[in-house]
C-alpha cells in the first residue's frame, strides 16, 4: 500500500503525514511536488495542512491552480481516496471537490487546541475503525476553519451521511461552546457525494502515536488501510 503526500510551497504538515505513513503505519509513502504534471502510482493521497502559497487571496485558492491539481481531481473522480487535512480541506473546497467554503473563525483568533469530535458516520473508508458515535480527541490549529455552505448543501450533507465528524463536548454534547470556530452544524469533516474525498480541519496525523498524547488519529489512518486492503482482496 502506498500513500502520496502532496507538497505545496507553504505546506507544513507534510513531514508529519509522511512520518505517520512511513513510521507508524509502516507503509510506503512518497512526496508529490505541486509542480508535477502526473501522479505516481499511489493508493491514497494526503493533502496536508499548512499555509499553501502563504494563504494569499483565500486559503487554498492559489493551490487550486497548481500543476498537480488536475491530476488530483482525476484521481478523486476515479473513486480513489483523498484526505485533505486543515489547509488540505480548504484546498479541496476551492477545487470544488468538496462543497462549501471555510471562513475566518468567528472569534477572529487562530486556534491551537485539542478538541473533542463525534464520529457521526463510521460507514466510510476513513472512519470504519471507529465505533458508531465514538467521541475522540484531536488537535486543531487554524484561523479559517469556520465551515459554511448554503442550506440545500447542508441538508444534502446531513441526509446523505456525509458529515463524518462534528465538534462536541467531552461527553459528546453538541453545543456552541464546544464549537471552536463557528462552523455550521458543528461540522469538522465532510466527504464528497461518492464518499472517497474527506476534508477535515482537525489533525489526525498529530495524534497517531501515544507519545503525541493520543492515538485517536491513528484510527483514521487504520480505517484507510483496512478499507484499501479489503478493496484489494475483492
Amino acid at each position: 500500500m502506498k500513500f502520496g503526500v502532496v507538497v505545496f510551497p507553504g505546506s507544513n504538515c507534510d513531514a508529519d503525514c509522511f512520518y505517520t505513513a512511513e513510521k507508524v503505519l509502516r507503509e510506503e509513502v512518497e512526496y508529490i511536488w505541486h509542480q508535477n504534471n502526473h501522479l505516481p502510482a499511489v493508493d491514497a493521497l494526503i493533502i496536508p495542512g499548512g499555509f499553501s502559497y502563504g494563504d494569499y487571496l483565500r486559503c487554498g485558492a492559489v493551490a487550486r491552480f497548481s500543476n498537480i491539481m488536475p491530476e488530483i481531481v482525476k484521481f478523486a473522480e476515479n473513486g480513489r481516496l483523498v484526505l485533505g487535512i486543515c489547509n488540505g480541506f480548504q484546498i479541496l473546497t476551492e477545487a470544488k471537490l468538496l462543497p462549501g467554503a471555510l471562513l475566518r473563525n468567528d472569534s477572529l483568533k487562530f486556534i491551537c487546541a485539542d478538541v473533542y469530535l463525534k464520529v457521526e458516520n463510521n460507514n466510510s473508508p476513513f472512519t470504519n475503525a471507529y465505533q458508531p458515535g465514538e467521541i475522540i480527541k484531536m488537535p486543531v490549529a487554524h484561523g479559517e476553519g469556520n465551515y459554511f455552505c448554503d442550506p440545500e448543501t447542508l441538508a444534502g450533507l446531513k441526509n446523505e451521511g456525509r458529515i463524518l465528524f462534528t465538534y462536541c463536548g467531552p461527553e459528546g454534547e453538541s453545543a456552541a461552546e464546544y464549537n471552536p470556530n463557528g462552523s455550521l452544524a458543528n461540522i469538522a469533516g465532510i466527504v464528497n457525494k461518492q464518499g472517497n474525498v474527506l476534508g477535515m480541519m482537525p489533525h489526525p496525523e498529530r495524534c497517531a502515536e501515544t507519545i503525541l498524547g493520543g492515538t485517536d488519529g491513528l484510527t483514521l489512518f487504520n480505517s484507510i488501510c483496512g478499507w484499501l486492503r479489503k478493496a484489494d482482496s475483492k
Partner: peptide, 8 residues
C-alpha cells in the same frame, strides 16, 4: 475562477 469564491 480565482479572485472571488462564488460560494461565499
Amino acid at each position: 475562477q480565482l479572485l472571488a469564491n462564488p460560494v461565499i
